[in-house]
Structure formats: structure tokens, C-alpha cells
Design a binder for these strands. Sequence first.
DNA 1: GTCTATACAGCGATAGAC
DNA 2: GTCTATCGCTGTATAGAC
Lengths: 219, 219
Amino acid sequence: MMKATRRPPGAPARAAGTSEAILDTAERLVQTRGYNGFSYADIAAELGVTKASLHYHYASKAELGRVLIERYHAAFMAALAVIDAEVAAPCEKLERYVGLYDGVMRNDRMCLCGMLAAEHRTLPATMQALLQQFFDANEIWLTGVLEQGVRSGAFAFGERPRERARVVLGALEGAMLVARSYEDPRRFRAAADYVLADLCKRSAPVARAGSGRGRRARG
Amino acid sequence: MMKATRRPPGAPARAAGTSEAILDTAERLVQTRGYNGFSYADIAAELGVTKASLHYHYASKAELGRVLIERYHAAFMAALAVIDAEVAAPCEKLERYVGLYDGVMRNDRMCLCGMLAAEHRTLPATMQALLQQFFDANEIWLTGVLEQGVRSGAFAFGERPRERARVVLGALEGAMLVARSYEDPRRFRAAADYVLADLCKRSAPVARAGSGRGRRARG
DNA sequence: GTCTATACAGCGATAGAC
DNA sequence: GTCTATCGCTGTATAGAC
């Protein structure tokens, strides 16, 4: 955020920025093992650097955690903006939204903020606040889509879209949570499809669960 | 499990068994902070004993964790048996089922197995297996209630009760997960009521959310 | 069954050379 | 920006006295 890190020609040439590589590794570790389930030593070992180097980029673990949530939140908002730009139908927007989480699952991970929510009590105050902001943003976007769907008559439910948005968000996070215990991403997809079908009027948008591939994995 | 611990008259007289007291404390710590978020030192400090004493009762943390899940699972099954014995209507059974989780939330905790599910990758193999068994048992019970409700015409949905059971379980676990980030048990209750109302034909069984108390907290 | 004492690995973090 | 070296603390676990 403060320096450009224009690397000199003869330098070690770490793949386009150590700071980002640290974030990438740390993000995966949090999503798979939790904030209390990984250490600086884990990141250092994987990247082939020392713990001291990590502290140069992120002075404390709390700082690293803060940046992780901020980046994840920003990336998620960007993905939602893409959805809003590319599709107009509420049901299709929701399918794309579910697709984001499905990509995370297929990548053998859990939602970063869902994972951190479990550890909420043990987190630094800054991270706790950012966690709420992520869920708030999701809730707001979902509520907007649901309201749009109610107006256009695309959805089979009538009242309290904000409550419904919270239920949908919780259902998706919970489906990821439970699916992890079975190490089976299809379990998430099946539950997510049921939630979608239950919301939209048409019988069932998909029958992916149990059948086959569907779409490719993502970061 | 092996000895009766008949305490002699002049003994320190720890409240009806140190082993159980350890489990009680450990259970609360796991439900609030996670398996990786507490230590033997935390339990020892709270109970006023030493860490060495804890290791006498539970040789390793993995062993302690195993017993915790087994006890929690057994207690949950017992609660479900009470529900089956006391009420017959499927909708009422589901309300009672939700009431179990609501009691956990009001007690400032998260479902033990929901919490452990997040940390799944970092757990000993034995605990991982027991975790699946807990969710399987919940799924089976819920599926039975849903099938009963479909036959009696109490439920507004028609097909795939097992899938629906998974969705309901996930929705409840996820609602707890997200609600913790807001430190607000009412958030769980509101979502749970929406799930119930969405399932049962009658308009809305409750309007607790946002209004007031409702029922008393539980262990 | 509980204690004191301790082993030993791991943790987050820092100092200072290069 | 990365390294070596190390600090202080906490983690799980054990030995042996009482």
C-alpha cells in the first residue's frame, strides 16, 4: 500500500511480490485450518522464507488477519459487482452468488469469514469488527436481489426480504461448515441448490448434485 | 467409566466428581473459543487445580475432545428422545428441536459440533469421525420428522426429505455461526423461526424476534 | 487424586548484520 | 528485504512425591 516494490534486475525475483504471496498462503491456511490453526512458521516453510521476513511485511498476526479480511471483502464485493453488471434476473444473480461459494468449496476451502466467525471470541477487536462488515455487506446485497425478485414476481416468497437474506446467508455458511466434516463439496452444492430451488418459482434450476462436474474450480 | 469414585468423608469434596467438572468447563471453552482456542491451563485456572491433575483424568487433549463429543452426542440424543416422547406433531417436534439450539445460543455458546466442524482439518482422526456421526444422527432424526410431516400433510414441501433435512441442519448451524459475529442470540432465533415458518404450512408460528423474552435459558 | 517440578516443542515477536 | 539468532511465553505432556 505504501511502496511500489519495483524490483531491481538482479534481485531474488520472488514471484511478483512477497507481500501478496504471504497473503495468498495465509488466506488458504485460515480457510482450511482457522486463524488459531496456523502459525507464521507454516507460512514461512511453504514460501521458503523465515518468520522474521514475514514480520517485516506484517508486523503482527493481528495485522495480517486484518489485511486478510479486508482483501477478501474487497474481492467479494468486486465479484458481486461483476454479477450485477453481467446478469439482471434475480434468480440468475443468486445462482452466480452461490457459484462464488461453490468455487471456494471446490477449492477445498471454507469461506474465510465463516471460518473466522467460529473463532470470533478469540480474535482481535479489529478483526471482529471487519467480520461484521463482511456479513453486513452480503446481507445488503442479498436483500437487494430478493427485493428485486419480489417486485418482478420471480420469487415464491413474499415478506421480509431482509430476514430471508439472513436465512440464505446462514444456510450457505452452515452448508459449507457441515460439508467440511464430510470432506465433500457436493454436499454443499446439493444444499445450495435446494435453497435456490426453494426460493425461485421454477421447479429446480439444476440437478448437479450426485451427477457430475458442472463448472470449474476457482481461487 | 471405570471407577465409582466413592469419596471418603474427609476428602476435598470436589463438587460431585472432578472428571465431570473438567468436562463441563472444557465443553464451555470449546463452544465459545474452539478446540484450538483453549488450553489445559484455562481449565486448571478455572477449577483451581493443576494441569497435571487434568492429565490424570484425560491423558491427552485428544482424549478429552473425544469424550466431549461422545457426551454431547449422547445428551443430544437423549433430548431428542424426550421430544419424541412428549410431542407427536411434526411441526411441534421441529420447534422443540430448534429450541435445543436456541438454548445453546442463549447460554452464550455455539453448537459444540458446529464449532468443531470449522476446525475439522486440525482435529485428531477420532474426533473427526465422531463429528460425522453427530451430524448423521441429526440428519436421520430430522429426516424422520420431515417424512412424518409429509405423510400427515403438515409440511408445505413435497420431495426429498433427506436433502431438506440437510438444508435445515445447515441453516441452523450457519445461523448460529453468523449470529456469533454479532453477539446476538436473537439473530439466531429470528432466522430459525423463518426456517420453521417456511417449512410449516401455517403462516408464522411465532413473532418472538425483536419483541421480547420468550423462554428461559438453558445449559 | 492432587501436587511440584520439569521437559521440550512451538508460538509471536524483536535485534541487528547483510 | 531477508537473514541468523534469540527472547519470553505458552502449549501439551510426564515423573515422582504425597
